[in-house]
Simulated scan of single mutants.
Amino acid sequence: MVALLLVSMTIINTCGASASTNPKFPAIVIFGDSTVDPGNNNYIDTIFKGNIAPYGINFPGHVPTGKFSDGKLVTDFVASSLGIKDVVQPFLDPNLTNDDLRTGVSFASTNSGYDDLTTLLSNVITVSRQVEMFRSYIEKLKGIVGDEEPTTSLLRLWW
């Protein structure tokens, strides 16, 4: 189960990466499981975490990041090739910057699935909870850019 949503907002200068770049898609938003989880599980009470070796051995800094990968995820490569950012951060990371939020985040959680019952024993983030987190993300984004066109465009694309 992997879901990837590229979100294009209409006012690139307000929400885009930097003034020197002009990406076609200024933000990327990810929903899914371990194949796209950048480390959200590090911030929840579950045994399913990728923050131990050998994970991260080929990642910059050679440290485990919470990704179930030895390096970057496919979503990191997509975000980078679109000129959005080098890596997509987990939404639950308490150190997210405004720019991280403007350029998108991942809500993915290892061991999640379409059926919320799948996650009962593992205590990970269900897909329906990822959608709730997305709503919280929209509110945070509004706090950064205001109730301007970019957030309403984002909502129109989602709903």
Score class of each variant (00 low, 15 high):
3 A>R: 10
7 V>I: 10
8 S>D: 06
9 M>V: 01
10 T>R: 06
10 T>I: 04
12 I>A: 09
22 N>F: 09
22 N>Y: 05
23 P>L: 08
24 K>W: 09
26 P>D: 04
28 I>N: 00
29 V>K: 04
31 F>P: 04
34 S>T: 05
36 V>F: 03
37 D>S: 06
37 D>C: 02
40 N>G: 02
40 N>S: 01
49 K>I: 02
51 N>V: 06
51 N>F: 05
52 I>A: 08
53 A>C: 11
54 P>G: 11
55 Y>L: 01
55 Y>V: 11
56 G>H: 06
61 G>I: 07
61 G>A: 13
63 V>R: 13
63 V>Q: 10
66 G>P: 03
66 G>D: 01
67 K>G: 00
70 D>I: 15
72 K>S: 15
73 L>E: 03
74 V>Q: 03
74 V>F: 09
78 V>W: 05
79 A>C: 00
82 L>D: 01
85 K>F: 04
88 V>Q: 02
88 V>C: 03
89 Q>M: 15
91 F>C: 09
91 F>E: 05
93 D>T: 07
94 P>K: 09
95 N>T: 12
96 L>A: 05
98 N>F: 09
99 D>Y: 04
100 D>E: 03
105 V>D: 15
106 S>W: 11
108 A>N: 00
109 S>I: 05
110 T>K: 00
112 S>Q: 04
116 D>W: 14
119 T>P: 03
121 L>S: 07
122 S>K: 11
125 I>Y: 09
126 T>H: 01
127 V>M: 12
129 R>C: 08
129 R>N: 12
130 Q>C: 08
130 Q>T: 01
136 S>R: 15
136 S>A: 15
138 I>Y: 14
141 L>D: 12
141 L>V: 11
143 G>S: 07
143 G>I: 09
145 V>Q: 09
146 G>F: 05
146 G>I: 04
147 D>L: 12
147 D>V: 09
148 E>K: 14
149 E>S: 12
151 T>G: 10
152 T>L: 07
152 T>Y: 05
154 L>Q: 01
156 R>Y: 04
